[in-house]
Amino acid sequence: MLLIACPYCGNRPEIEFSYGGEAHRVRAAQPALLDDQAWTDFLYMRSNTKGVYAERWRHARGCGRYFNALRETTTDHFLAFYKTGEPRPPLDSLTEAAREAGGPGTAGNTGGET
């Protein structure tokens, strides 16, 4: 079970959370203006990254709020938690910090974030 640090409540077990899928996907202000392919991309296509993935979690059985996390999907180690609306933390500093802490690096990853 994952230990997830809600930015509002601190460390909590995974069973308190629900998963919200890929983060930083922005719904178009006027979806009707999108062509079919762009709308399909928004609705269905996912990066499904093998490597560092930005994803949403909701503290469903806690404060109820959504937030974002960076997780290495080849190890399931979290690299960062941040509030919705905040920019995605730069990868370089995180992997550096993780390496210093003896945590997971990113060596051997193949999929890139698009």
């Binding site: 899928g21 269905y44 296509m45 996912r46 499904n48 093998k50 999907t73 999929g111 890139g112």
Partner: peptide
């Protein structure tokens, strides 16, 4: 489960989650 990674090599995005 690795289809997204392999197809990503040809820049094809798929409606998949692993």
């Amino acid at each position: 489960g690795s289809t997204s990674v392999v197809m990503g090599l040809a820049s094809i995005r798929l409606p998949l989650e692993s």
